[in-house]
Amino acid sequence: MSLKQTNLALAKDDTNRFLPWLIAFMSLLAILSVAGFLLLKQVSDLFEYNSNDTMTIQVPSGNSEKRTNKKITQIINILKETGGVIEVSLVPKVEVIQLLKPWLGTISESQTLPLPQIIDIQIDRSSGITPEKISNVLTIIVPDITVDDHSIWLIGLVKTLQSAELMALFILLLIIFIIIGTVIFTTRTGMGIHKQTIEVLHFVGAHDDFIARQFAIRGLVVGLQGGLIGFLFAIPILYVFDNLLQNLEEGFLPKAEVNIFVWLSVALVVPMISSITMLTARGTVLKSLKKML
């Protein structure tokens, strides 16, 4: 396809002045949510990895508190005897409520819900201990016991982080929808402005594809322009953010960083957005042309 063929200036109209900037803004948001997702994922993965030498045992609450407490003491004693278990600790009820807050909301301590008792154990993996072995021993005392291979503390945090990750992806999806909507709207407007030209193209025997291509190319260009501008704005933001992350005090939080993988991923947002704008423009034109004679 020669350049001349594409030079119909079909998509040149006023909507083009603001469109690249709107796409640029949307691209910046998309890039930030992708980066946010990846950074959160780094942290949650690290947490999951770090929680490797702990297990959590959940004992469902029975009808009688007295009997349950008795069983708990029994379980703790058995665990202390078990090879490979280094430390056993019962998690206080207040903390259990705190842990469940993300799922249940704030509950008063005068428990209306039957809360499970939670026991954390530190283990030595090299001893060959597994959750199955522990639960086999303990089900004799309490049949419906569950043994998790992670610390429930960290699981709670990881779960919270993971919902934040999902949120970032959801925002990305929302941005994509807004871009698609905007491109559909501007393409329709453009087609209205160039109605005469489109008619003439039909009369001289142009296929719908030929006409759609004119708009698709324009969509690609606008998407690339907007995407690149958005990316340029994202660079300093991510750079500053990375510096902040690196200057965080050493400690509880595992470190996240804007590494080469994050940079590559956010760079991919640019071709992703321009493909979306191109395909949306094309699809919109083809769909409205179907209604013409």
Binding site: H202, F203, V204, G205, A206, H207, D208, K290, L293
Partner: peptide, 13 residues
């Protein structure tokens, strides 16, 4: 619809 372009190319207006 898909055959219209072919037909229209044989018509000058």
């Amino acid at each position: 619809r898909t055959e219209l372009p072919k037909l229209r190319r044989r018509i000058g207006v």
